[in-house]
Design a protein around this nucleic acid. Structure first.
Lengths: 147, 147
DNA sequence: TATTGTTATACTCTATAACTATA
DNA sequence: TATAGTTATAGAGTATAACAATA
């Protein structure tokens, strides 16, 4: 038992990240900025505090990421109606279109990967990967709870 | 089909990385430095050029990582016999012991995760995850080849 | 002339702490 | 007094380019 199932799972994550980095090299996109856009695509316009919460990152960090994305024309800062301290960060129409396309490509990649699995194994793989994710989440949250 | 298999695979990778970062917070270990130690654990003593190649990172970057790991007592720089330009980077005995323990814990975690899969599904999951990794590697290498 | 590693410089992500404007 | 965001400062990872010593 040299290469474990965990090794294989981590390898998939690494490959994916490497491909993302390569695909966006030179475009000004970075993993951290894409995470912001992805969060806005799924959650809609939100304050920087909300973004910081969802990304599990400090508010200061969000300021920098939003600065960069605003400069590159991917997000806008709009006044928050009802709280003049806060701003609402929202995708620009162009960025929303880009994210929709990325979401479609992501789904297509997922389908292509499942296609590599023997048809008879597919249901088991879906169940198994789900179970592994849930178990890992349990183990991690136990580890975080017990210092 | 809202959460795809790819989403679940990426979630597993994120959880793992988050747990690693948490486990080593405050110890001076970082993901990048652990990768260096892991590479030395598997490949034995090697030059910084070789490390840069295996990590897919610039030689300059390796200099910095090895500096930090040398300062913290995890690696040593030894003269290369036969090439006075190069150095051999090797784990210190203490670090080698730590890495062996980590390798064992890694295997135990892998076993615990496979344990979360229904026994009847296990073989299919191993086959399926392997197939997905191979297909993704193909797709990535095609994407890298065709600019 | 080519290779190994380092110095110099710069950018991104990230964090903490102190501060401003509003609630 | 508490919250939203920013300025200030710092450290880690990463890259490119120029340079020294050695092949």
């Amino acid at each position: 038992m040299d290469v474990t199932i965990l090794d294989r799972l981590l390898y998939i994550g690494e490959l994916f990240q490497r491909d993302m980095a390569r695909a966006f090299a030179g475009t000004g996109f970075t993993t951290a900025r894409l995470r912001v856009l992805w969060t806005l695509q799924h959650g809609g316009p939100m304050t920087q505090q909300a973004l910081a919460g969802q990304l599990e990152v400090t508010p200061r960090n969000v300021s920098g990421l939003v600065d960069a994305l605003e400069a590159s024309g991917h997000v806008r800062r709009a006044p928050h109606p009802g709280d003049r301290r806060a701003v609402l960060v929202e995708l620009t129409p162009a960025a929303a279109k880009t994210m929709t396309r990325m979401q479609r490509e992501h789904a297509e990649l997922s389908a292509a990967l499942l296609d590599a699995v023997a048809p008879a194994d597919r249901a088991a793989v879906e169940r198994g990967v789900t179970a592994i994710g849930e178990r890992l989440a349990e183990l991690v949250s136990e580890a975080e709870a017990a210092p």
